[in-house]
């Protein structure tokens, strides 16, 4: 169940780097950043969880962060890719993990893994027999 309205939490301490669990109980990445959207009255609301190298790169900063972001950009078909974005509307519960209502198959969370699978793993002889 989601917590009662009005509760307070510290974003970096209680949300960042938490494991995301999808509706089927599978791992679906980590919380690498949060999207904050302004309202008319000047306040900001968390509207999405950003996950994966595209989001983490910006947070790490420095050479490592730039490298992570540029690798992510290279792997992505779009010219100027956004990080993986999970709308906060699919969040069911915040706790030691962040639980979603949706299955990860409906979310674009494992882009890097898919790329590695298609480009490298699939070319290894016998890889076609590997169980999912």
């Amino acid at each position: 169940m989601s917590a009662p309205a009005g509760r307070m939490l510290d974003a970096a301490f209680e949300l960042l780097d938490r494991q995301i669990i999808d509706g089927d109980g599978n791992h679906a990445g980590k919380v690498d950043d949060l999207e904050l959207t302004p309202l008319e009255d000047g306040s900001f609301v968390v509207t999405a969880i950003l996950s994966g190298p595209g989001a983490l790169g910006g947070r790490l900063g420095g050479r490592l962060g730039t490298a992570a972001a540029s690798i992510f950009a290279r792997l992505h078909p779009d010219e100027d890719p956004d990080p993986v974005r999970l709308s906060f509307g699919v969040v069911r519960e915040l706790g030691p993990q962040v639980r979603l209502t949706t299955s990860r198959h409906h979310l674009d969370v494992n882009r890097f893994e898919h790329w590695v699978r298609d480009r490298f793993i699939a070319r290894i002889p016998g890889a076609g027999h590997a169980p999912e």
């Binding site: 510290d10 309202l39 509307g89």
Partner: peptide
């Protein structure tokens, strides 16, 4: 840190 309070506009199943 950034302190958040859960009293904003409704976000889907999260409330």
């Amino acid at each position: 840190d950034v302190r958040l309070v859960q009293d904003g506009p409704i976000q889907g199943t999260f409330g």
